[in-house]
């Protein structure tokens, strides 16, 4: 690879990612009046609408619904936006890739990093909601950052794989979009999974999105140590995905340039 080991080049590498990310965020909010504030506001508005609909219109009874929904929403959004934007990273940056000698991962990682920055901003609203609704956050909340660490690992692996896939198959974007739409409904975002029939419930409990969300909810909202089976799944999904993504990227990376 072009950028090789050593501290100096690592620093450079990170700088490039930061710079690309800054560009990305700027572009996203270029014309907007509230700008980056939207990253904080948006989750709150979503939460307000969904809470209104499900707890008032349909009177579903879930304890502390706003926080319940928001936990799922911010984690799902992190993975969904991170992976969708990463998917097109290689194709979008075609010119930069031809002109510069930056490592190709950079382009994917900068999209992931952008999503992560967005996530951190949405965590501000999350904390506000936790305080307002008086969620007793205990020591088990240490599992939350741990959970996010594994989410990121999963996301990076997924993004590597998707970005390569999209270079070789244009339909990949549609396929993944459809899969994501289905998974959104099967991630237990706005309903209680325990209410479902056993078949659907089993299916959902193997959905990585749900696994990450469940660990976050248990540890942060309910002050419980997450169930062992979910912790194990969390690690397997993320480490597995990271390895798969990394391998795909490594073996296909050089073919990408020909294809592009």
């Amino acid at each position: 690879m072009v950028v090789e080991g050593g501290r100096e080049s690592d620093k450079q590498y990170i700088n490039v990612i930061r710079e690309l990310t800054r560009r990305e965020i700027k572009r996203k909010y270029a014309r907007s009046f509230f700008g980056v504030l939207w990253s904080v506001l948006n989750p709150l508005l979503y939460m307000a609408v969904v809470t209104f609909v499900f707890s008032y219109l349909f009177s579903r009874e879930i304890e502390n619904y706003p926080a319940y929904y928001l936990t799922g929403y911010i984690i799902f959004s992190l993975i969904a936006t991170g992976s969708t934007t990463s998917m097109t990273a290689l194709k979008d940056n075609r010119n930069l890739m031809l002109k510069t000698k930056w490592a190709r991962q950079t382009f994917v990682l900068s999209r992931v990093y952008t999503a992560f920055v967005n996530f951190l901003l949405s965590c501000i609203s999350y904390m506000v909601v936790l305080i307002i609704f008086r969620v007793n956050v205990g020591w088990t909340a240490v599992f939350f950052p741990l959970d996010i660490f594994f989410v990121m690992l999963f996301l990076i692996g997924l993004s590597y794989a998707l970005s390569i896939w999209y270079v070789f198959l244009g339909d990949a974007k549609n396929i993944y979009g459809t899969i994501l739409m289905v998974l959104r409904f099967f991630s237990g975002l706005f309903y209680k999974v325990d209410d479902l029939s056993p078949g659907v419930k089993t299916f959902i409990s193997f959905n990585p999105f749900y696994v990450f969300i469940k660990v976050a909810r248990d540890s942060t909202l309910y002050g419980k140590i997450p169930e062992m089976s979910f912790l194990v799944q969390m690690v397997i999904w993320s480490v597995g995905m990271y390895i798969v993504g990394k391998l795909v990227f490594k073996y296909k990376e050089n073919k990408v340039m020909e294809k592009i």
């Binding site: 349909f58 739409m181 289905v182 409904f185 099967f186 309903y191 209410d195 479902l196 029939s197 659907v200």
Partner: peptide, 10 residues
């Protein structure tokens, strides 16, 4: 998807 989820949830 909607049919499956909402006929079960609702």
């Amino acid at each position: 998807t909607m049919v499956i989820i909402f006929s079960v949830v609702f």
